[in-house]
Design a protein around this nucleic acid. Structure first.
Length: 123
RNA sequence: CCAACAAGCCGCCUUAUCGUUCCCCGCUCAGGCGGGGGGAGGAAAGUCCGGGCAACAGAGGGCAGCGUACUUCCUAACAGGAAGGACCCGAAUAAUAUUGGGUACAGAAAGUGCCACAGAAAACAAACUACCCCGACUCGUUGGGGAAAAGGUGAAAAGGUGAGGUAAGAGCUCACCGGCCUGAUGGUGACAUCAGGUGCUUGGUAAACCUUACGCGUUGAAAAGUCAAAUAGGCCCCGAUCCUGAGCUGCUCGUUCAAUUUCAGCAUUCGCUGGAAUAUCGGGGUGGGUAGACUGAUUGAUCUCGUCAGCGAUGGCGAGACCAGAUAAAUGAUAAGGGCUCUAACUCGUUGGAGUACAGAACCCGGCUUACAGGCUUGCUAUUUUA
């Protein structure tokens, strides 16, 4: 099991890559997330890259959006060791529920998404 | 005492574990690792005003457009603030004085427009009822005139009150109050006070157009600047090859279409004339510029303390401090305990339950507005309750 860190390198910040993910990547829905994913074109990248998004339409106030993003980020940080590292992925989590869920439930659901991401083919 | 109001201030804490970003120090196998320190607000919000900063535009002036509107001051600036004036509403009083609150507070005899309903009439004027005078006759009606004093309508109706006067009335005349004009005095000024004159019909609305005075270039950090990989293409030089080649227009040949051929004219580059060149491939150089990175961008109209000037907003001087700097966006997550408020129970200081607000920096400042659980300080006591 790796270290429980979440550094800058693990965040998805390249505009081109994000655009490619939404245009060409696959997706599935698992309550409460809509997950976009695809293999990273640069397989030499040291880790997975993820981004977290909470819609302004569902949560009008910035405080609520920040709270949910922080909870998801913590859930990923603590549990990311469960995701195999052989195939480098690019993942986007979109929180698409109108209620604020407690941390325990978010963690449980996030781990379930990992099981589906295990079977993604390499390019 | 409680409670309400006004102004100002604060706006959860501790520990553990796992993290995040920036700065400093040390180590390093250059990937990082270890230690120390800093890390959301009073509104960070709404984006409603005003500036700094940047690019572009710009002689000056005018028109148009937008904004502001009692005075003086403060300020980088403001639609903000301070002090004051006038008016309006209230408290208080015999009446002042005093005191709380409010005001989009320039101009309505420059012009245009509008004024619902009601009412006779809502504005170059105008008589419904009632009143007075004169005339007519069928003798209680009618015709003419006077008159804004009375009635009723309305948000608003011809300066108000009293007296004289009159057929009845009317600033018709007079006194007081109000208005307008002129002057004096005080005040930087808005204005105030006083004196004199003037009978003084001529509504309201300018958050209706408008007029006057003053101010304003446009855009907005996704601004702007610096460095700059790969690929393609531009320009220059050298070499090689083909052997005269790019582009536009017209004609012609040809074709399913497209490409292509011939001829003529134009074009571009070598500063101009003359003359020449315009292709392809390879190598080197060069400027523009994309991804990306950096600057902008956190030391500032800054904060704290003291002191001086001023009624005050605020300013001067001196000393000290550095107080977030992220960028698909950090400032956190989880657990335990404790505060605080409300509430229920009883053994009356314990236990249980619920709540702990509004809200998250995005270039930076000055304001305004709106949201806010709970608490603290100061002022005040009109009203209510208790003694």
């Amino acid at each position: 099991m790796g270290k429980l860190t979440f550094r800058k390198e693990e965040r998805l910040s390249k505009e081109k890559l994000i655009q490619e993910l939404f245009d060409k990547g696959s997706s599935f829905y698992l309550y409460p997330f809509k997950v976009y994913y695809m293999p990273n074109p640069d397989q030499d990248y040291p880790c997975h890259q993820i981004m977290i998004s909470v819609s302004k339409r569902n949560f009008k106030r910035a405080v609520d959006r920040n709270l949910i993003k922080r909870r998801i980020r913590e859930a990923y940080r603590i549990n990311k060791g469960l995701l195999p590292v052989q195939n480098k992925l690019v993942i986007a989590y979109i929180y698409s529920v109108k209620d604020i869920l407690p941390s325990a439930e978010i963690q449980e659901r996030l781990v379930k998404t990992f099981k589906r991401l295990e079977h993604v083919e390499k390019i």
